[in-house]
Amino acid sequence: MRSIVRVTERVVETPSTVTLRFPFVAPAAPGQFVMIWIPGDDELPMSLSYTVGGSKGVTVKAMGDTSRRVQSIRAGDAVGIRGPYGNRFDMAPRRILVVGGGSGSAVLAPAAEAAVADGARVTAALGATQAPELLFRGRFDAMGAQVEVATDDGSEGTHGFVTTVAERLLGTEPFDAVWTCGPEVMMQKVAVAAASAKVPVYCSVERHMKCALGMCDACALGPYHVCVDGPVFPAERLLPLAEFAHAHRDPSGRRVPFGGH
């Protein structure tokens, strides 16, 4: 069922990223998502960036028109929330590498916090275009994670891709899981690197969604539906799919290649 709630807080996390906090008491786990309705505009799937207690949150990067409109929501505005939907990160691993690109930290930060609270050790490899765009760097520091950074422009950390950092870390430490979220080409590279290090990888993926109930087929990805079978998938299920890292579907169901990576 859908709840109408008022946004309690709007936080500018980076120049392109905004968090909205809102009261939502339904229990949720890291990895899950909600459908957030902007009345009169649209309803979008968003992974929860805050999953604990009665104040949940989503963190939105300005990409298309709609995410810009989500960002335009102010404290006090009414939004509709339904969910949470989808699966979650398995908390069994004890030594975890998280690899986040762009806004991927939105889902990885709460997952890492839950893992640390459960006694796991977390190393975070975070990538962004430039240093000010590194999302939730402070949250990873605060939870006691070891943080390694890569930026496209070299303004902080490794100059280049976060996958380079991840590959190096995988070669030096015995992780028992990799959690990753970001552009699919990035996740694919991480998955291939981790496979050769024999470390299981879990990817949080995104697709256009409508019903979020496993029915309308808008989020079909190979034989899976991201809304109910995901959004977190073991990499070995994704790597054989022709679409993974190559194409998604637009709202009409047409296949559209990923561009610009």
Binding site: M1, M35, L44, K210, D250, G253
Partner: peptide, 15 residues
């Protein structure tokens, strides 16, 4: 022709 359908919300779920 390709047709995107209506914008969301496209669904209201009852118990």
């Amino acid at each position: 022709l390709p047709r995107a359908g209506y914008p969301n919300p496209t669904i209201e779920e009852y118990s």
